[in-house]
Design a protein around this nucleic acid. Structure first.
Lengths: 118, 118
DNA sequence: TTACTTACTTACATGATTGTTCGTACCACA
DNA sequence: TGTGGTACGAACAATCATGTAAGTAAGTAA
């Protein structure tokens, strides 16, 4: 989510992952706060200040970073309204909406798995 | 996957994620090499040396770390055979087998999504 | 006694992600 | 002119994840 050094082993190893669609999908939702944000946005469009209020424990920096990353990966759309003060709204894309039921399956699996683990 | 400092913001923030089963599931499969290992093991039991040979680009340290983590999370079972030299085999647990079709859905989604992105 | 195989383990270094703090741009309104 | 609200951005620091290089343990065979 920042700049990367080329030619480190870490970078070079990426080629072994990059052609794995599963890894890609997990990467896309893998940021620390992305799932929480997806879960919020599935209930409807939110503006930046709403997210900031609801997730007050997420630093503003991380909030914008995760949102930007999700926008780049085609999970959300960012709409800017030229009002005063500015209003910025975030909405799920169709692709993200397709993802939701799969995440629900994952969630159910996680639930079962955790109850088994204790 | 190592020791953690308590009381850092990073640690404290965990409580906002820890009760999210989705995040748990993503965490469980989120290590860099876990999906590749799952994909290999779904085709059948493998011994350590097989994995090492197939994934020669993964350092031994990371290989054992990821395998141990997957074992702790109930994704794989580690069987040790008291032969000479030792033989250690890794097998998917039923829980991991339940996970496979969900991961296939994720993979299909990733495939669609990536073709849209370019 | 030494060498050999398998499956790790440890100490250390590098790179990536996340968090803290402060500052900015825009325009309205007093 | 100055204050206020929204939505960020940049510099820096802390923490986590990954990679490198070397060594270990157990047992058998030479």
């Amino acid at each position: 989510m920042g700049t990367r050094k080329e030619n480190s082993t870490y970078s070079r190893n990426e080629k072994y992952i990059i052609n794995c669609n599963m890894s890609y999908a997990v990467h896309v939702i893998g940021g620390r706060w992305k799932l929480l944000l997806l879960d919020k946005l599935r209930k409807g469009t939110s503006r930046y200040s709403d997210l900031k209020k609801e997730f007050s424990y997420i630093s503003e920096r991380m909030l914008t970073l995760q949102l930007k990353s999700m926008e780049e990966d085609g999970l959300i759309i960012r709409n800017v309204y030229a009002e005063v003060p500015v209003r910025v709204e975030y909405t799920l894309t169709p692709a993200a909406i397709e993802l939701i039921p799969i995440l629900d399956l994952l969630s159910a699996w996680g639930n079962r798995q955790r109850s088994l683990q204790e």
